[in-house]
């Protein structure tokens, strides 16, 4: 089974972010990056499927040069090779552009299965996977919590996570795309041997320009910022009965907590 796993490099969680001078993005200097969490689960799922059915796991990423680090980590975890589409950041803040770039390489690779995370920890669009499947005209399932394959690896049965603890079971024929939810498995550790061999594995770079996608962007980030927190207080006068009645009314209508 040939599996392409799409991973994204994102700034490490729990970092104290600062905004850049134009308020268009965060300051990237001195940030530590890691593989987007859901994508790491997707990679683990891919590695398990490979262990069961044989084949190959190819990592695919769209990002800056720095994304090579995430790919090397993916290779250290056990992926066979990696492709990095090196793109300018302003071009890839639109998930459709990312999906188009991924499609171009997916068509070259022709995998049986594409796995990626449900959403990224930075932009959190949760659209790239679905868009990629649609562009490829492939069946897809999102928020996947369990993957089962038949013996020959031609069809999939997956469980999707719905609201309120409900699960939905979906059958798909390959080729297909799944977006994987975090917690689906226990991600392995990168062994020291894995880290050593990762250096020697193939990492192919593809230039964004060569894909001919420039100018197709539909979304532009205008500004980012931290939510403003405001403290408000109000004293409700009058008798206790009156104050309580006003308070309940406010809780219902303004604060919407009752």
């Amino acid at each position: 089974m040939k599996i392409v796993t799409c991973i994204k490099q994102v700034p490490e969680k729990d970092t104290r972010f600062e905004l850049n001078t134009e308020d268009s993005w965060i300051k990237e200097q001195d940030l530590t990056y890691e593989i987007n969490e859901c994508d790491e689960y997707a990679l683990e799922e891919a590695l398990r499927l490979k262990e069961k059915h044989g084949g190959e796991v190819v990592l695919l990423s769209v990002g800056s040069d720095l994304a090579e680090r995430a790919l090397r980590r993916g290779l250290a975890l056990g992926a066979d090779r990696a492709i990095l589409i090196v793109a300018p950041r302003e071009e890839i803040s639109d998930p459709l552009m990312v999906a188009r770039a991924l499609r171009a390489q997916a068509q070259v690779e022709q995998p049986d299965l594409i796995l990626t995370g449900v959403r990224s920890d930075d932009h959190a669009f949760a659209q790239t996977g679905t868009m990629l499947a649609e562009l490829l005209h492939w069946p897809h399932a999102t928020i996947v919590m369990k993957v089962e394959t038949d013996e020959v690896g031609k069809t999939l049965k997956v469980q999707r996570e719905l609201e309120a603890g409900l699960l939905e079971e979906v059958a798909l024929a390959l080729p297909a795309l799944l977006t994987i939810q975090q917690g689906i498995n226990q991600v392995r550790y990168a062994s020291l041997k894995g880290i050593m061999t990762a250096k020697k594995k193939e990492l192919r770079r593809v230039d964004w320009i060569s894909l001919g996608l420039s100018g197709g962007k539909k979304i532009q980030i205008e500004r980012i910022g931290f939510p403003k927190s405001e403290k408000k207080f109000e004293i409700i006068g009058g008798s206790p009965e009156h104050a309580a009645a006003v308070l309940v009314e406010k809780m219902k209508k303004e604060m919407k907590i009752l």
Binding site: R69, R72, A76, Y189, A190, S191, L192, I195, M196, K199
Partner: peptide
């Protein structure tokens, strides 16, 4: 990067 990856593995372990 390799050294940091090793540290991460041991730290997680």
């Amino acid at each position: 990067d390799e050294e940091k990856m090793v540290r991460r593995t041991v730290r997680d372990f």
